[in-house]
């Protein structure tokens, strides 16, 4: 049942994110990107399946049973993804501010949609 909750959570996060990145205001898009990155990070992370109480931290020495620990590869990937999504968010924020200063509007196209 934990699986169901987590997949629903991924779905809700992704849906909110997709809806927001299709909106016309830059701030909506930036929030949408953050939400979408949560969803994607959780999705990649969940590819290692759910493991409770067994972080991939090894005892020193001795033979090891890999099935007793969480899969470390998705975790390493997501760790990288978190840092990179922070960088893109920062970059997008600056582009947003610069575009707003240059065009006088916070519409993603740099101009208001003609009515």
């Amino acid at each position: 049942m934990m699986e169901l909750v987590l997949s629903l959570a991924i779905g809700v996060l992704a849906a909110s994110g997709i809806w927001l990145i299709l909106r016309p205001r830059t701030f909506q898009v930036i929030v949408g990107l953050c939400l979408l990155s949560y969803a994607v990070n959780l999705f990649i992370f969940s590819m290692g399946r759910l493991t409770l109480g067994a972080p991939p931290i090894m005892p020193r020495g001795g033979p090891i049973d890999p099935t007793a620990f969480a899969d470390p590869v998705p975790q390493a990937l997501v760790l990288t993804a978190i840092v990179i999504s922070f960088a893109t968010t920062a970059l997008f924020l600056v582009v947003l501010i610069a575009s707003r200063g240059l065009t006088g509007t916070d519409h993603v196209d740099g101009q208001e949609r003609e009515p």
């Binding site: 169901l4 987590l6 997949s7 991924i10 809700v12 999705f43 290692g48 899969d71 470390p72």
Partner: peptide
């Protein structure tokens, strides 16, 4: 989009993990 992602996530989460590079 959200429902699709949720469905894929759920199906994969409930499949047993095959031995891999991890």
């Amino acid at each position: 989009g959200g429902a699709g992602l949720a469905a894929i996530a759920y199906v994969i989460l409930t499949q047993p993990l095959i031995p891999n590079v991890g």
